[in-house]
Write a protein that binds this DNA or RNA. Structure first.
Lengths: 335, 335
DNA sequence: AACATTTTCGCAAATGTTTGCGGTGGATAA
DNA sequence: TTATCCACCGCAAACATTTGCGAAAATGTT
């Protein structure tokens, strides 16, 4: 019929020309503005559908100064926890019309700050971030927040400063783990923690030790592991001692994997000779034999909390809040 | 000293006002256009730095009709393979100044096509996609490609049609697996494949059977598993038969996990009573005891190939190509 | 000094959308 | 008849940038 395909992509202008109306009328008709008659609305919408009109998001963004995109910065996507977190955030964000731009810092503070700049460059409407170890971007954060771009920290959050955070109840989880160890009357514990510069490590370690130190009957040896290989090494050394530990605690999945690399084919039997307990996202422990007992920290649930917090934050400046997700003990056969 | 912070964000206009120049001069100065004298360039750049000017990407996109963003659609992020694939693509894309917008289809064809529309809405410069099972978006794909937005399919690619694809050498991998099984003189094989509607499943199965059917001495039973639970069920049934298989083949990590859920604490010993072989991304097999032998399909490597292909495709319309990533056999202790 | 050339820069249009405001025509009320 | 009001719609500015074209200024050439 008419020149439906004049020009490749439909625009308000093209529609208005065809219909002999002004651009603004077409625009308002498509948004159901009350000023426009039902009749013209119908005509406009029909042609728009026919021409497969779709508002040019570049133009919309420019005009409204919003992008409907959220930035998400993690040390690495490939990590049980982040993975399920991202998955949850993506799903929930979609429901509210937001999409996700995902950036990896590779645990490198430099790349982290570059990612932040990227987020600014793309003018995202908000940022989720899980800190790189030794992150130094603190000033950047406050700067962005002051310039009105909300940031929600998750999992690995800043120690100092007043920020919006969403994380596991680290103390609670570690405390639960410690109590379980006492309940099972363990005597000699090798406790493996993550990177000591991370606040998540400190919180878990402090809470863990606070309980166990009170208990005179149990000896605790603490080791820090930057990665899984570190854990492998520490466990290897420990079980080859003349007096090996009777329990191993792992504060994360990564560490658990590293530890199990040795334990799964060590002469020591789990849980008879040596028991194992982890803080975990829940997927990995089930893969081993016996299944590892763990205190659950659900990335998925945390993701839902994070996006909820972000949306609140975007529609109205709300007071800073530190949200905690309670943990639960999952009984396997390793303790 | 001057009113550096007049207005919150720096724009070309604000700079030009301060410097008493035209907007275009400022614009060109910042891009090192040869028409502009070194002197004014210097002045402009200084003030721009001082005011922390950053081009408004909305406006740039509008003007240039490019976004420097690539869309990536997967059934789910939380999947060993996708995870490492995404990780690689993100890293490589960054190097070329591109960022990633990640969408999940949840293996739902409807959401998949909605995601495609989202990509169009955001006017991404290109799309990576791993198909949902029973995807019906085929017409959409060709439509997008015709309207000049390149699509690179990966891993789960369309069967028919002429598309740019990047995937594992599925036949080769399955063939390698089949040969290994023959070499180890297995007699009764339970072969677990994924969703039968996926071309990746068909390819692997056909190649696998093609080799084994020629070998009269080995009996093969094929089962399809939509998910890990299916695999668990099939294996349970099989090992409880009076005449259980002496080998289990898993075409993916998901299936391997499902199968191992039973095998790891079954009375049958691996590999003495029953051997196991998988096609895998490489992370999961190492968690079990004994470590599972597998034919490797690296999401990470594939990601690098995919982005390379995408970049080629964006700078010049190149002929359709189907790229294959060769696989390799990794010896564990399960076969 | 007259002319030609190069350097340097500004004007204005174009991208597509949103929105405040003003305008038109017709109906109803005074 | 004039005033009032409402329903409907268009004008034009604004958002920030890019870029073709042209003009003024500076420099060079006879």
């Amino acid at each position: 019929m008419i020149a439906v395909k004049m020009g490749q992509t439909a625009t308000l202008k093209k529609i208005s020309v065809q219909l002999n109306m002004s651009i603004s009328t077409v625009s308002r008709a498509l948004k159901n503005h009350p000023d426009i008659s039902e009749n013209t609305k119908r005509k406009v919408k029909e042609l728009a559908a026919l021409m497969e009109y779709e508002p040019n998001s570049y133009a919309v963004n420019l005009r409204t100064n919003k992008s409907k995109v959220l930035g998400l910065i993690v040390p690495a996507i490939s990590n049980m926890f982040n993975e399920s977190f991202i998955s949850a955030v993506e799903n929930e964000a979609r429901k509210s019309g937001y999409s996700l731009m995902i950036l990896q810092s590779g645990d490198d503070p430099l790349q982290e700050s570059e990612n932040l700049k990227l987020c600014k460059h793309y003018r995202v409407d908000g940022i989720f971030i899980s800190l790189a170890a030794e992150s130094y971007s603190s000033e950047l954060f406050t700067k962005y927040i002051e310039s009105n771009i909300p940031i929600v920290f998750f999992d690995r959050v800043p120690e100092a400063g007043n920020f919006d955070t969403v994380c596991m109840a680290d103390e609670e989880a570690a405390t639960m783990a410690a109590h379980a160890i006492i309940t099972y009357k363990k005597k000699k514990v090798l406790a493996l923690f993550g990177n000591p510069v991370l606040s998540i490590t400190k919180k878990r370690k402090d809470a863990f030790l606070k309980i166990l130190k009170k208990e005179k009957t149990v000896a605790v040896e603490v080791e820090y592991c930057i990665n899984g290989a570190d854990a492998t090494q520490h466990v290897t050394k420990a079980i080859n001692k003349t007096n090996p530990p009777d329990h191993i605690f792992c504060m994360s999945d990564e560490i658990l994997i590293g530890a199990m690399k040795v334990l799964k084919n060590a002469p020591l039997k789990i849980p008879e000779d040596i028991s194992v307990l982890a803080i975990s996202n829940g997927f990995i422990p089930g893969l081993f034999n016996p299944e590892i007992s763990y205190v659950e920290t659900s990335g998925f649930e945390l993701g839902k909390l994070a996006i909820k917090r972000m949306l609140e934050n975007m529609e109205a400046k709300t007071p800073i809040k530190a949200i905690m997700l309670p943990s639960r003990f999952v009984q396997g056969n390793s303790l």
